[in-house]
């Protein structure tokens, strides 16, 4: 999780496969698609999300907010899937 993004900045986040749902991550990338570019790949126990071209005009921490969305989506999906 980075601090406020610089122009065109990039970041990488690792989500443990046991704790984050792939669909939840995909939904979060869709929510934030206007503010950065996302690439998701599997790597061992983790989904690795490469985030680039972060929109520098947005106030706040896009990467950190994205992480919260991925968590909230995972929790919600797990509830809905029973």
């Amino acid at each position: 999780m980075s601090a406020a993004q610089a122009a065109g900045a990039a970041a990488t986040v690792r989500f443990h496969k046991e704790l984050y749902d792939e669909q939840a991550i995909a939904d979060a990338t869709a929510t934030f698609a206007d503010y950065a570019r996302f690439g998701v790949r599997g790597e061992g126990d983790h989904f690795v999300v490469d985030i680039s071209d972060l929109d520098s005009e947005i106030e706040g921490d896009i990467v950190a907010e994205f992480c919260n969305f991925a968590l909230a989506n995972s929790a919600a999906l797990r509830r809905n899937d029973g």
């Binding site: 999780m1 986040v13 690792r14 989500f15 443990h16 704790l19 984050y20 921490d61 950190a64 907010e65 992480c67 919260n68 968590l71 909230a72 995972s74 929790a75 797990r78």
Partner: peptide
């Protein structure tokens, strides 16, 4: 999940 979720208004959270 449920406990972590309660804090997302105050904190950025990453589980591992």
């Amino acid at each position: 999940y449920a406990a972590a979720y309660v804090f997302i208004d105050r904190a950025y959270i990453l589980l591992d």
